[in-house]
Design a protein around this nucleic acid. Sequence first.
DNA 1: TGCCCGCGGGG
DNA 2: GTGTACGCGGGCA
Length: 805
Amino acid sequence: MTSILFYLTSITYKIENNTPIIYLFGKTKEGKRLIVKDPTFQPYFYVLIKNEAILEKIKNLAIEEGKVLKIEKIQKNYLEKEITAHKIIVNLPSSIIKFKDELKKWDEIERVLEYDVLFTRRYLIDKKITPMTLLKVEQNTIEKAKVTTITAKTVEEDNEELIPNPKIIALDIETYNPDGKQINPEKNPIIMLALKGENYEKVLTWKKINGKNIEILNSEADLLQRFKEIIETEKPDILTGYYSDGFDLPYIKSRANKYRIKLDLGWDESELNIKGKTEKIAEINGIIHLDVLKFVRRIMRTSLKTDTYTLDNVAQEILGEHKHEVPLDLLAQTWDVEDETQLKMFADYNLHDANLCYQLCKKLLPNMLELVKIISLPLFDVQRMSFSQLVEWYTIKQAQLFNELIPNRPGYYTQQERNKKRLHGAFVYEPTPGLYQNLVVFDYRSLYPSIIASHNISIGTVNCETCEKKEKVPTEYAELNICKDKQGFLSTIIKNLIEKRARIKIAIKKKPTQLLKARSEALKLLSNSFYGYLAFPMARWYCFEGAEATTAWARFYVKNVIEKAKETGFKVLYADTDSCFILLEKKTKKDAINFCKEINKNLSEQMELELQGYYHTGLFVGVKGSKTGAKKKYALLDENNKIIVKGFETVRRNWSFIAKEVQKEVLNIILKEKNKNKAFAYVKDVVEKLKKNKIDINKLIISTQLQKPIDEYENVGPHVAAAKLLEKKGKPALPGMLLKFIICKGEGKIRDKVKLPEDVKNEDYDSEYYIYHQVIPAVETIFNVLGLNIEKQLTERDQTTLGQF
DNA sequence: TGCCCGCGGGG
DNA sequence: GTGTACGCGGGCA
């Protein structure tokens, strides 16, 4: 028997001979691929019982293939209180849900717990194994397959060093797409496929294009075969794409299905698997598939300025590089006429996109890996998690160490109830709407975790009934006390995160490295997410009072900062949950930096105020009402004369082009030229043209996707009406189709006024609709904060009111 | 007002 | 796979 060291990259399990076998995919120190099978791990869950007599009945429980193997009595904590639990060990992971459903019906059972911790995740947590790090395995037997496979006697963590230089390949496809925005993998072929690795770049295609890295195949089927071949020979550890979960890989899969090509890229010869109901996820056993977009949208969101996560915007902000500008809507046509020079341009574009994605993945990987090290779940999973999931899984891992039972996820009803609860929110300092010069934004987010840590906020400490020493929470909304006798579970794990980060920050000061920075970022990210988690309706460790206490103290601290800013001579413009906007007026940027330093001096070391940015101009949109956690709504002009738009979510595809165009132009005029009259005149001009039906109808088309067959709709919205019109013409209206329609003059509801673009003449469209439901809503908040009711102004003929600006 | 429904990203 | 998004806004009932 020999022992082998290997880096674990991904994990799955299979049932063999009615026994679950854990499959660990990884690479040895020598870089050889290896599959380790571990048959020793058994699925289990917990019950809290009222009466020991019931144990015998549980022991004999059997449902279908599922059997109870063993019961262990065990001392645990549940919600920070000591308790006796019973661990029910069973034969099959899939039997656990059935046992849970049965046991919940029994009177003698008080509670069933930990029935929904996925088997592979349970394995990692219990074995204290961290993916992407080095494991030691005692080998039992060996079998020869596509990838060397061994059965392990034991598996354990050896060392926390990360896998060195994982090999990344990025992929991007171009598809034949004659119908504009509409995407149809059933009908339209893949015409180009680009792959980019460290020393590898290639565009596969199947028409004649001359170029260094272009490989011409005979057909789309050959292209797919060649793609498979390249992945097999290049053996990447990581395959990445931009929206490859939702687009590239599902598209490749469905084209391969068409030609009956098996995409058995998995190390165990399993196929590329597209799973997920609401959102697609593409998985290949052994190869880690990363979708950069998902990480960007879920995790980078808060740290990016951009509001739309197109590859172009994201690459521009993170890498400082744009996509190639090409007329993408002409690609299909170009492909048909086989214009070689033009096709070469598209091939370059294709490869460049893959390259951007490759660079993004490489750049973000250290951050993802640090999260993997903290959470101890596979990179594949961590990369796709939202903040709340990261917090939850970190807490689950910690629960094991603190001997805490994991609370159940709330049922639908509980979630609904929690959803109704309104948190007495963060302190909001209302902005005076307007255009401002020289703004500084302070970000005060670390306030929240430090409050939770330093004030010992946790499920077991909020309004604890048994304690003697307690601290009163400064709020008039509720009687809240926090226990001072014992350390809370949640507050302790947050405190540990903060302290860990503090140590790393010291190390960074001594010697800054990319790795340390990524680690610090990951810790910050996680600890900053805890507060939101406490009030998150789906949270297992939901703690509404804890969240209330946190905001109460936050108000206390934030007010203090605002006061200090005023004392220092700054004008405070706006403050909310996590940030504070000030106007420099006669003060300088340096004064702001000094102020920030001054504030930090007087804070406990766990707290930190950051200078988030400096801006020439800001168009400030107030928060409507005063709802908790309302998102910022503003447009800023940064030091590079770039416009940053936040919170103007109007720009969606199901809006007409005219609405999008007007909004963009208005922001441009106001921020760059600072000319409100010009902006108003511009809108007025567009509205006049709309009234006279002089706007090109192509700008009025609204596109909405049909999600299901027409007769499944309970409510007939405009796009459903459009679908019906299409059907009336004898044309199909199938799910997935992008329906284009124009709202025309007529009686009744909007859906009654829907017409298909081909049937619309310029004089037909409903000017009123486009003015009041498209153009005005797109810009009205902008004009509102400038003190102008655009709708009113537009309907009043009197131009003199403009003087009120 | 509450509920249903689509959006994002991708060509 | 012991299964998962999320948060928002428009239109209809």
